[in-house]
C-alpha cells in the first residue's frame, strides 16, 4: 500500500512526534507542530499515536491510494474531498484503491494532519521519520513531499470506520489567540514598563512563520535595562553570550519583532529571550495564520502545569471515546 502524491500542496511534510535527544548537537526535536491534532488523527485510524502522517500548511495535497485503506484528517478546518465528494474531518474514513483525496479552501487554522492506517513508513533518521529539511533528515531524502512520490505505509490495525471526534473535543486557538507564557530566561533585561507593554500589546502573526519559529509584529519596540554589555555578547542590548534556546522561547532581536521558536527550533544563539510559551499552548501556534491577532499572557508555573494536565485529560477523554 502506498500514497501516490499527485500534488503536494504548498509545503507538506512527513511528521511524527519527533526525535528527542539531539538538541545538544543542534538537531531539533521536530515532529508535528500541532501534536494534539496529529495524535487524534492517528487514534482515529487505529495507529499508535507516534505513527508518521502528513502535515500540510494552508493548502491540502492531492493523494491517490493504491489499495483499500482508512484515513483521518484533523487540525485546520478545510473541506475534505474523496473523489470530489465532501467527507467529514476528525472522522475515520474508508477509501478504496484508486480513490483520490483532495481538499477545498482553508477556512480556519493553518495546519492539516492526515493519518493513514498503518502510518507512513519511510526510513527513520535518528529514531524518527519527521522531516527536518535544514539538516536533510527524515521524510523523503530529508525534504518535503513532491509530486510523483509514493509514500509507503505499514500494516493497518483495527479501525472503526465512521468513528468521529465531536467538535467540542477539538482544540483550536481563540481569536485573538491567547498564548500563555512563563516569564523568565532573560526577562530581567527589560525595563518594568516595557515588560508590561509587551503583555498589553496586541501582536499580529508575520508572514515569516514556519516550523522553526513564528514571528510577530505590531507591538511597541522593547526597552532594555541599561548595562555595559558582557564580554563576548555583542554590542546590541538584545545580545547575550550565545546560549541554548528553549522550545517556545520568545526572542526579540533588536527589541522589535518577537520570534517564538517551535518544533524545528535553532538550538541556541545570541539573542535574549524573555520567557517561553507553556507546553500546553505550543499546539495552538501551529494553527495560526499570518495576520492573526495574538496576545501574550503571563501565567505562573502552577497555571502552566494545570493547563498541561487539562490537555492530557482531553486526550484521555478522546482515547476513551474512541476505544
Amino acid at each position: 500500500m502506498a500514497l501516490n502524491i499527485i500534488n503536494p500542496g504548498l509545503s507538506t511534510s512527513i511528521q511524527d512526534l519527533g526525535r528527542p535527544g539531539y538538541f545538544h548537537l543542534g538537531i531539533p526535536i521536530g515532529g508535528a507542530m500541532d501534536r494534539f491534532s496529529m495524535r487524534v488523527a492517528n487514534m482515529l485510524v487505529g495507529n499508535s499515536e507516534d505513527a508518521a502522517g502528513l502535515e500540510a500548511v494552508f493548502m491540502g495535497p492531492e493523494i491517490e491510494f493504491t489499495s483499500d485503506t482508512a484515513i483521518a484528517v484533523t487540525g485546520a478546518d478545510i473541506p475534505v474531498m474523496i473523489d470530489g465528494v465532501e467527507a467529514p474531518s476528525w472522522t475515520a474514513l474508508a477509501v478504496s484503491k484508486g480513490q483520490k483525496l483532495s481538499f477545498g479552501f482553508l477556512k480556519t487554522g493553518a495546519r492539516i494532519y492526515i493519518a493513514v492506517a498503518g502510518g507512513i513508513t519511510t526510513p527513520e533518521a535518528l529514531g524518527s521519520r519527521s522531516t527536518y529539511p535544514i539538516g536533510a533528515l527524515g521524510g523523503i531524502e530529508g525534504r518535503n513531499i513532491a509530486a510523483g512520490d509514493a509514500l509507503p505505509t505499514g500494516s493497518a490495525g483495527a479501525v472503526t470506520i465512521g468513528a468521529s471526534v465531536p467538535s467540542t473535543m477539538h482544540r483550536m486557538p481563540a481569536t485573538p489567540a491567547i498564548l500563555r507564557m512563563v516569564k523568565g530566561l532573560y526577562w530581567h533585561r527589560l525595563t518594568e514598563a516595557s515588560g508590561q507593554q509587551f503583555l498589553a500589546d496586541e501582536w499580529k502573526v508575520a508572514p515569516e512563520a514556519d516550523r522553526m519559529g513564528y514571528r510577530f509584529r505590531g507591538g511597541k519596540t522593547l526597552e532594555f535595562v541599561d548595562r555595559e554589555q558582557p564580554f563576548g555578547a555583542g554590542s546590541d542590548p538584545s545580545n547575550i553570550v550565545d546560549g541554548c534556546y528553549s522550545y517556545g522561547s520568545i526572542q526579540v532581536p533588536g527589541g522589535t519583532e518577537p520570534i517564538v521558536l517551535h518544533r524545528d527550533a535553532v538550538s541556541g544563539g545570541g539573542y535574549f529571550t524573555l520567557g517561553a510559551i507553556i507546553s500546553a499552548d505550543m499546539d495552538y501556534i501551529g494553527q495560526l495564520q499570518p495576520h492573526t491577532p495574538v496576545k501574550f499572557e503571563a501565567v505562573s508555573m502552577d497555571e502552566a502545569l494545570s493547563a498541561r494536565q487539562e490537555r492530557h485529560k482531553l486526550l484521555d477523554a478522546i482515547r476513551s471515546e474512541l476505544s
Binding site: 523568565g184 522550545y247 507546553s279
Partner: peptide
C-alpha cells in the same frame, strides 16, 4: 537559575564568556 516555560531549566553560569 531560571525556567524556560514548564519544560526547561536554564542555568546561566556567567553573563560574560570565559573558559
Amino acid at each position: 537559575y531560571t525556567f524556560g516555560g514548564d519544560e526547561h531549566i536554564y542555568v546561566e553560569i556567567d553573563e560574560e564568556m570565559s573558559l
